[in-house]
């Protein structure tokens, strides 16, 4: 959890306390809706643009609490990333060894004149590169821009991978025995 998450949690918690507290005060009779006067009003102002004035303190507390809860819920909502459907047909001698790598391009930036990099990027996918690779074949690639990303569909078309090099003979002298137990090739990559 980040500091922002903790702040959101505190905001939501304060909102719940305010809502429940105002209801509790009303229930106990500490504050009453009937005793409201035009002189004693609770006013909340935000940046001189939004101003809420109420002659009923309980309602004002309730609204502030509800706003806190709603704001926390709204800000904690995960950003929706639209999926991109890839469609195409690949022809290769050994389809089991074909690997499709997809990389997303976010944006490009430049360093300052003194070499420092100070930039803020918005992580929005602007370009998707699909590379189709197979052993002994030259890789094929397709690039998709914002138009295809927005449509949610990327048509790869027909891709033919020509066998350029045949598989070399497996020579035992090329394979040094491992003295320790090594994770299999299918093991998740820890670095790159």
């Amino acid at each position: 959890m980040t500091t922002f998450d903790y702040i959101l949690l505190m905001l939501g918690g304060c909102g719940v306390i305010l809502v429940l507290g105002s209801m509790g005060l009303l229930h106990k009779g500490v504050i009453k809706l009937s005793t409201a006067s035009s002189k004693e009003a609770v006013s909340i102002q935000f940046k001189q643009t939004i101003r809420v004035t109420s002659h009923y303190p309980a309602i004002a507390l309730f609204i502030v609490g509800l706003t806190g809860v709603s704001l926390a819920a709204f800000m904690a909502k995960p950003s929706t990333v639209r999926p991109l459907a890839l469609e195409g047909n690949i022809k290769a001698r050994d389809l089991s060894s074909v690997r499709i790598e997809v990389t997303a391009g976010l944006c490009a930036t430049k360093p300052a004149t003194d070499g420092r990099v100070i930039d803020t990027i918005s992580p929005q996918v602007k370009e998707v590169l699909v590379e189709i690779k197979a052993p002994g074949c030259n890789p094929e690639s397709r690039k998709f821009g914002t138009k295809e990303i927005a449509s949610g569909k990327a048509a790869l078309g027909d891709i033919v991978l020509d066998q350029k090099i045949e598989m070399p003979e497996v020579s035992p002298e090329n394979i040094k025995p491992a003295t320790v137990s090594l994770p299999p090739l299918s093991a998740p990559g820890g670095f790159n």
């Binding site: 052993p135 002994g136 090594l182 090739l185 990559g189 820890g190 670095f191 790159n192």
Partner: peptide
Amino acid sequence: IPGLTVSLVHPVVGRSSPCM
């Protein structure tokens, strides 16, 4: 030779993400 899968493995660090 294109398209070969290359990997680095270390007893402590583990296996790298495969690279082609």
